[in-house]
Design a protein around this nucleic acid. Structure first.
Lengths: 335, 335
DNA sequence: CTGTTAGCGCGTTCAT
DNA sequence: ATGAACGCGCTAACAG
């Protein structure tokens, strides 16, 4: 509430000196510096960041767009983002898009209106509108988890979903499974295509038939997992193993399978994806793919900041390492 | 990137008129208004919010301070906050304090430096430092879930934790339980005192002894739930029912209890708190207290905005309704 | 090392 | 109904 001028008065210096004291303390005489700090203290002065932003053109904040705040996996990413941002003097603006394009549009606009300097997308599931595509040309941004397929290549931090699903599929075929079901979260995204492709490639190698009617689900949620399992159990051929495209889905699926009086993994093996924390506490604990969510968040910040600072991007696509976590929700197929 | 001046040029008007067109469209002639909108479109003009903030002194954003982003309950609150904020033209700055006072301090400073207009605390667990107490005098703020006991009374949105725990305790005593354990999340907070008080009041009425050595745990986490259960099971008298002060703790506790070869609820009943979504999908599903997290978030925004807008607060303490959710993790004591 | 000056982009009186 | 002019609080030249 007190301004830089009051500090000037108290210290008997000009605004420039006060400003310098705050930004490059070593550019100013120790003696006066002390005096200024004292004055700042006394006045209870806090620089008005808005005012400085007008000058510098930097807001020192980043928007993060997330389609679904209830997903613990995204949250872990956000923790990484928040931490890295804070370490770099940036604050993070939360944009819960709920998957609605118009909310996404609004939040993206924050960068244009100077409220934020950059944009981090989590799992962007729909293509940009023409308007936004133009926007994306000049706005520092990065996408986490989902590469956006379009003319311009946005930088992206992601997993090798194809390989991860191959690992999962090999794990299951090695247990003797031959009849599979899949509960997906979206069926339009690149993630979906990569993962499905990975699974199919293994089944192909093993000479196992797979019918696309065994792919169900269109939302990353417990409910969708539950509904998906129900649908799969109602089919003519019951799968002995189900791929769930995230852990929430797997949790819902297992819940449903148990309701049908079946046992996991004895009757049906279930595998998830993401390795959210609770998956280790489920009964049975979930076999899943670990994604280094926290690190992905940190990397995302690194990449946007690089763009903001006009440093050349070393690479446009960063692949992070997955680990397959074998727990008790998957096992040998019962004979 | 284009400024208001370019719009002026294109439309052949002054900056004042453009500014007015954006804020009070009806103050300006329909004809010129159209021309200006066209110019805005053409120039791709977006007002610089920083610049306007300098003038108005309002940033149109709120900071939310959260001690632990991994807690789904907090997330649900944040969803409510985000939505309400957005509806009111505010954006939300995320402050993950990790329970560290200095990070809290930093984020609180955002209000002083005009980066935010108000502050929402989630489950503030430590008292303000003297510096911050002074701060709190003049900053619009509200606390959710935890009332801060200090000289000044901050507005707070909270549950009647005392009554909620009475309901839980009555539920369990009605099942015949007499030996209880408690796994708490903190033991210094007002929440802790309220909840413990509620439980004890019921036990007292029922003539049941309760030893404080049966209170364990100091963190709202799976691990702490697991460790707490372990400790309780190792005691001389094994409890037949355990109160967990949130659902994460309960999940950890049940996991541990099962590892010991015991059954929930046959051997031990477990109740949680918060009713996070996954609790319905656990095996067994959790008996718990539902807190209307989303609504709490919305109310919090209402309250801060009221302060920001200098409207008198109707009341300083808002109590929201809880519901006891009886599921399968609690049952009759085995004889 | 420090002060003077000139804006940053916008909102807001005053006039007209 | 519109324009000219000033200033919000601060930073960044440029002098000295």
């Amino acid at each position: 509430m007190s301004t830089i001028k009051e500090v000037c008065q108290l210290a008997g210096v000009s605004t420039a000196t006060v400003s310098r004291t705050l930004k490059n303390p070593n550019m100013v005489n120790v003696k006066t510096r002390e005096r200024i700090f004292a004055a700042i203290e006394k006045a209870g002065y806090r620089p008005n960041v808005m005012a400085s932003s007008v000058k510098t053109g930097k807001s020192n904040s980043l928007v993060v767009l997330v389609p679904n705040l209830s997903n613990p996996f995204f949250l872990r990413i956000i923790q990484g983002i928040e931490k890295a941002a804070q370490e770099n003097g940036y604050s993070v603006l939360l944009g819960d898009t709920q998957g609605e394009p118009h909310r996404e549009h609004e939040y993206a606009g924050m960068v244009l209106s100077n409220r934020a300097d950059g944009l981090i997308h989590l799992d962007h599931s729909f293509p940009f509108s023409d308007n936004d595509a133009l926007l994306a040309e000049k706005v520092p941004m990065v996408s986490v988890c989902e590469r956006i397929v379009s003319d311009k290549q946005y930088p992206v931090i992601e997993l090798d979903n194809y390989s991860a699903c191959r690992a999962l599929a090999k794990h299951l075929t090695s247990y003797g499974h031959k009849r599979f079901g899949i509960i997906a979260g979206q069926n339009e995204s690149q993630i979906f295509r990569d993962r499905l492709g990975g699974i199919k490639s293994v089944l192909n190698e093993e000479g196992i038939d797979f019918d696309d009617s065994m792919v169900v689900g269109n939302e990353y949620s417990y409910e969708s997992g539950s509904a998906g399992a129900k649908a799969l159990l109602a089919g003519k051929v019951r799968p002995t193993a189900i791929f769930c495209f995230n852990d929430d889905i797997a949790i819902g699926a297992i819940h449903e399978i148990k309701k049908h009086g079946l046992k996991v993994p004895d009757d049906i093996s279930v595998v998830g994806f993401d390795n959210i924390k609770v998956s280790a506490y489920m009964d049975p604990p979930l076999t899943t793919i670990d994604q280094p969510a926290y690190e992905m968040g940190r990397k995302a910040v690194e990449v946007v900041l690089q763009q903001i600072r006009k440093k050349p991007l070393t690479r446009n696509r960063e692949i992070v390492q997955f680990r397959i976590i074998e727990r008790a929700s998957s096992g040998a197929v019962s004979s």
